[in-house]
Design a protein around this nucleic acid. Sequence first.
DNA 1: CTGAAAGCGCTAACAG
DNA 2: CTGTTAGCGCTTTCAG
Lengths: 337, 337
Amino acid sequence: MEDVAALAGVSRALVSLVMRSSPKVSPARRERVLQAAEELGYRPNAMARNLARRRTHSVGVLLHDLHNPFFGEIAEGLSEVAVIAGYRVLLTAGGVRARGEAEALESLLEYRTDAIVLLSPALPSAAVVAASEACPVVVVGRAIRSSQVDCVVTDDSLGGSLATEHLISLGHTDIAHIDGGFQPGSAPRRRAYIAAMTKAGLAGHCQVRTSRFAEQDGWDATEDLLAAACPPSAIFAGNDLVAAGAMAYLNSIGMEVPGDLSVVGYDNTYLAGMHHLSLTTVSQPRAEMGRLAMTVALERIGDQRQEPVLHTLAPALVVRATTGPPPRCQTRKLTDE
Amino acid sequence: MEDVAALAGVSRALVSLVMRSSPKVSPARRERVLQAAEELGYRPNAMARNLARRRTHSVGVLLHDLHNPFFGEIAEGLSEVAVIAGYRVLLTAGGVRARGEAEALESLLEYRTDAIVLLSPALPSAAVVAASEACPVVVVGRAIRSSQVDCVVTDDSLGGSLATEHLISLGHTDIAHIDGGFQPGSAPRRRAYIAAMTKAGLAGHCQVRTSRFAEQDGWDATEDLLAAACPPSAIFAGNDLVAAGAMAYLNSIGMEVPGDLSVVGYDNTYLAGMHHLSLTTVSQPRAEMGRLAMTVALERIGDQRQEPVLHTLAPALVVRATTGPPPRCQTRKLTDE
DNA sequence: CTGAAAGCGCTAACAG
DNA sequence: CTGTTAGCGCTTTCAG
């Protein structure tokens, strides 16, 4: 910086002003400084700047892992609004290691980002609350009770109802659900499924299988379901991957979808939109979730203390080609396996 | 820090020593300091530390976007070796905006990460070389000629041969290729396809269609291919998504894979492994690419000047259920459309 | 182990 | 606009 000032024949202070694009500099000098910086390959040191300013103008984002495209889209929404607000986004990923997420969070905290957005962390709530002591925290995809962390989630309960009621309205009575165990969002979807069934007087027809949200789980659960005494005419899967597994199994035993059996997924990943599947599914407004979360985070930076809020976004049913009325004949070929 | 020292009844210097876990501190005092820090909710300031140390012990990683799981796996490989070397990983994503990548790179440069890893950047080479002036740079998935940037890529040429020769060895003669236009890796794969065909005396049977690596492109190209005068008995698709589109189209017109037509993909994404597709494809060693790239980056940090290297990893053919010998009868039903 | 002192690269406030 | 003067929070050196 010293050198740049010298080359441009101005004071260090002026260089500083130019670097943070203050309006109080004449265009001519600004040009001169910029050019000098260019020539010397000068680039401001973010560490020093942040240290002196006491704010980083950046918000940290913690993703669980980079694999899941679901979070990718949320992250895109996040950075979209961050960028237009002049904020930088610092990503970190927890990865597979047990302590990964905790370490990544700690790292963000040490970097003193102005706020932190947690994408569906597997972290214990206590850790999240502790972090919020030091820096505004907003968590996406998981509701946390605390007096200082904001949350943005989608209404999984509504999503579960949407899916189940769609199937019921089509005339199905034997509707099974393959849930996601303890994965976030699974519980409310499952409860909504049961509630919807009950409301339709179908409580006795509930059948639930558990999966870990992998394709093979969907295959296995479906196989199991069809081997049961009272096989379903429709399956509400906990996510698209599980639905894909279910369809693959049905396909393998020659059952037609939706002719013989209807399938609904969850998440509306790009998988669901593929020709092969063309899956009816429940869509969460991913980009919107990201945008909202960042908006909230930015607000918190501006105004630290305020009541935290729980923003609940509504999911939507996307009807494609895997759902239809149940087959006429109630006796299906169950004895293949 | 002052406060921690006071509470623990020691000097600031000692606290500093404890914080960077120096071995020259008696366990008793260390305990005392740690506890004081805990009580006060003290957390070292990374900015200040890095500023004073002149190194950040972190390497920056630039991903083009968060959507592509391909890069996610590479990133996982990266952070795996970074973590065991005690380095932190700072992710940034270029996103969709035009200047996105350039800004993200600039941002990393300003943060003075000890090294930077670029994942298949769309950035102009000049920008990459310019960055390497300020900080060790390694780019993966793209070869850049420069006297100071290291590259790790996979041998797309070999991958193209592997796929084509597999099809040839199965007895196919009319093999078409759906490429990825100007996408990185496409050109060498296409050339390898043509070379392999030529070597087998099949030069006259080459047929190439272009796609932008989307599913619909695969569908369209296949439709086009089958409507041609001399439809192929096998298709080598530029990536798995295109292959999926091709299969969806074949499926829609009632053609069997691999009975009527064989399909090979590229990348071995999780799509390829799904029951529905069970796609024969070419796999790139993603995790290994990441590990290697980080290893190289870390080496460069230790020893700045050295000849840059181009590491080429070998892809492998993964044979699944979409390839088989060509149908006996050379006159296929071409008139559906 | 302690204490003091210098400095990392930049910002910010204030007279000129 | 310019120079100066203080730090930001931590590391490092060096003599006790």
